[in-house]
């Protein structure tokens, strides 16, 4: 980690995350193939495509849940794939965060809302109960959960609240890079809109760098600076979000865009 910090100061203008030729296979089948991109500090990268396009495989390779079969991945100039398990886990609980599609996968359902938010703080050494609780209360407020729900378990929350709690739990330690997997996936349309609004505010206020995977073009339209379109494991088109959505070049992107009702 010391080495990483040293490199960090030397490369302030460099990309935060750099992906080169990343590939992952499931036997003979392609998960994702030869994906390359750079993500700069404060930037939101959207990855869109239908189910089976390889976007989730790519995300799980980036977040370290799966090991790619080929290619390179560096964070702040450090080769992430070469990190030891201990270093990788430390990165996951300090600098990185991961928002699951299903909040149940990202929350401890048997632990109170306050404990869920406090866990990451305690994992990086917080040992003052009152301060942990104050921070948790503050974060519940930022994701629009009433302070008096702090001792309730997530199982007593609605789906939208659970998702907001998961976001608070992830952002409480001020991570630099957040991976999001269909964060609005299982929610009602009205709840989705509110959550997107909240996410957009948080991403801007905190200057987060985000890689967000979704099949919903409205989500990337609202959140993403840049876009990659995936099909059958390959990136078929990439560029600025508005550019790609307003003037799609690849036939598949054109199909995707035209299949969405224009608002």
């Amino acid at each position: 980690m010391v080495m990483m910090e040293r490199q960090l100061s030397a490369q302030a203008a460099a990309p935060l995350l750099s992906v080169q030729g990343l590939s992952r296979y499931y036997g003979a089948r392609i998960g994702c193939k030869d994906v390359s991109f750079d993500l700069y500090p404060g930037e939101v990268m959207g990855i869109v495509g239908e189910s089976g396009s390889g976007k989730s495989t790519l995300l799980s390779c980036l977040a370290g849940h799966q090991r790619p079969d080929a290619g390179g991945l560096s964070y702040n100039g450090v080769d992430v794939l070469a990190l030891s398990e201990a270093e990788r886990r430390r990165l996951l609980r300090s600098d990185w965060a991961y928002v699951h599609q299903n909040p149940r996968d990202g929350l401890r359902m048997g632990v109170s809302a306050g404990g869920n938010v406090g866990e990451r703080l305690m994992a990086v050494g917080a040992r003052h109960y009152g301060q942990i609780r104050d921070t948790a209360t503050d974060w519940l407020g930022r994701v629009e959960i009433a302070a008096e729900r702090i001792d309730d378990r997530p199982s007593a929350f609605s789906g939208g609240m659970q998702q907001r709690l998961q976001i608070a739990r992830n952002l409480v330690t001020a991570p630099k890079l957040v991976f999001m997997d269909e964060p609005t996936g299982g929610l009602d349309v009205s709840v989705q809109a509110r959550l997107l609004d909240l996410l957009r505010g948080l991403v801007r206020d905190l200057g987060l760098s985000v890689v967000i995977v979704t099949h919903d073009l409205a989500v990337v339209r609202l959140l993403a600076d840049r876009l990659m379109v995936m099909k059958s494991g390959h990136v078929v088109e990439a560029g600025l979000t508005d550019q790609v959505l307003d003037d799609p070049q690849h036939a598949y992107t054109q199909l995707l865009v035209s299949s969405v009702l224009q608002v």
Binding site: S112, R133, D151
Partner: peptide, 22 residues
């Protein structure tokens, strides 16, 4: 065993936190 190896003891403090909250 992995938690010990990596000194991942945050969960232990979550338990203590929950006790105090409750």
């Amino acid at each position: 065993r992995k938690m010990h190896e990596l000194e991942e003891y945050g969960l232990m403090h979550v338990k203590l936190y929950e006790d105090i909250a409750r």
